[in-house]
């Protein structure tokens, strides 16, 4: 059946809750309303208010109580309503959620998922278009996942809920309405594995979340307009990252470009570029390039398109990459 990414996420939550009584879903407006993006639509009606419920507006409270629930054997899946409102919970996430297994010498693992709609491109007001993935990826103990397709959204969310460590699940909100023909339950490679979305020979585009679609568009246009055969790798799990797949691809093509919406400086792409230059140096014909957002606070809606990487910006960078 044809499903949007939002629909696939909703189906993943429903199927997980049906299969496992210990899965509970909560956050701001996720109950009666079904979430501001309707990702939790219908869950409270089917599962009851013990399994899916609204909370006070308290993001640290949501993350902190989820830890307590996981400690007691539940599998909480909580929602931060928007990326920009996930920051009040950072103390709980960094100081406790990420550290609990290590602090307790492996005795207490926390099976919990924090879902965060993230990224721009929907014409939102300030604080609704942030890309916080580097903060989470920099924090040891967190597993950071971001799907780029509806099928992966389903498969990775199910895998995250079944995972025995805390997962930061970053949902590319501008792709919520992206459609794909799916047979549920979708199976896909597990958390921790990247996927080659498009095989190619000229250069590797490395993307995740909202930029997977943009990178695929760029690769299609590159083939059509310039005859460049680009490979696209979808990172899927940002941390711990599947570096082997990235290195294999960059080694094969000899040229690599990392794409993300988030600002460039100390961004996720910097880490990937550094790793590739360390592990694939002898095979690279050109330095690893980055196509990213600018090092500015996320701009207002009417000018955000000039901030966001698009296929044109990617193709310009590919041209520079191929000139080496």
């Amino acid at each position: 059946m044809e499903l949007t990414m939002a629909g696939a996420l909703n189906a993943a939550l429903r199927d997980a809750m049906r299969q496992d009584d210990s899965v509970v879903v909560y956050g701001e407006d996720v109950g009666r309303l079904g979430g501001v993006f309707r990702i939790t639509d219908g869950l409270q009606a089917e599962m009851g208010t013990d399994r899916c419920f609204d909370t006070p507006v308290a993001e640290a409270g949501i993350a902190g109580t989820a830890l307590g629930m996981a400690l007691y054997g539940l599998r909480p899946v909580v929602e931060m309503q928007f990326d920009g409102f996930s920051y009040p919970a950072l103390n709980q996430v960094i100081s406790h959620v990420a550290k609990y297994r290590n602090r307790t010498r492996g005795r207490v693992g926390l099976p919990m998922v924090i879902r965060i709609p993230y990224g721009g491109g929907i014409g939102a007001v300030e604080h609704h278009s942030e890309s916080p993935e580097a903060y989470y990826s920099h924090t040891a103990g967190l597993t950071v996942v971001s799907p780029g397709t509806p099928g992966d959204a389903y498969a990775l969310l199910r895998a995250s809920i079944a995972f025995d460590d805390p997962v930061i699940f970053l949902e590319p909100k501008r792709r919520y309405w992206l459609k794909e023909d799916l047979d549920l339950p979708v199976t896909a490679p597990p958390i921790g594995e990247a996927i080659v979305r498009r095989a190619g020979t000229a250069a590797t585009l490395i993307a995740y979340g909202p930029m997977v679609n943009t990178a695929m568009e760029a690769a299609t246009r590159a083939a059509d307009e310039s005859g460049w055969d680009l490979e696209v790798v979808d990172v899927r799990t940002l941390s711990p990252v599947d570096m082997d797949t990235l290195v294999t691809s960059a080694t094969k093509t000899g040229r690599a470009l990392v794409v993300h919406e988030a600002a460039r400086f100390a961004g996720y792409g910097a880490e990937i570029a550094a790793e590739l230059s360390e592990r694939a140096f002898g095979y690279l014909a050109a330095p690893v390039l980055r196509v990213t957002g600018f090092d500015v606070p996320y701009p207002s809606a009417k000018i955000e398109r000039h901030f966001l990487p698009d296929a044109d910006r990617i193709l310009d960078a590919v041209a520079r990459l191929l000139e080496y």
Partner: peptide, 25 residues
């Protein structure tokens, strides 16, 4: 007994979450 917590008041939320979970169960 949860680990002794150092960031202030953070553990109070863990207690609330555990208590909520106990009620659910």
């Amino acid at each position: 007994v949860a680990p002794l917590t150092t960031p202030l008041a953070t553990q109070a939320l863990h207690a609330v979450g555990l208590a909520m979970a106990a009620r659910i169960k």
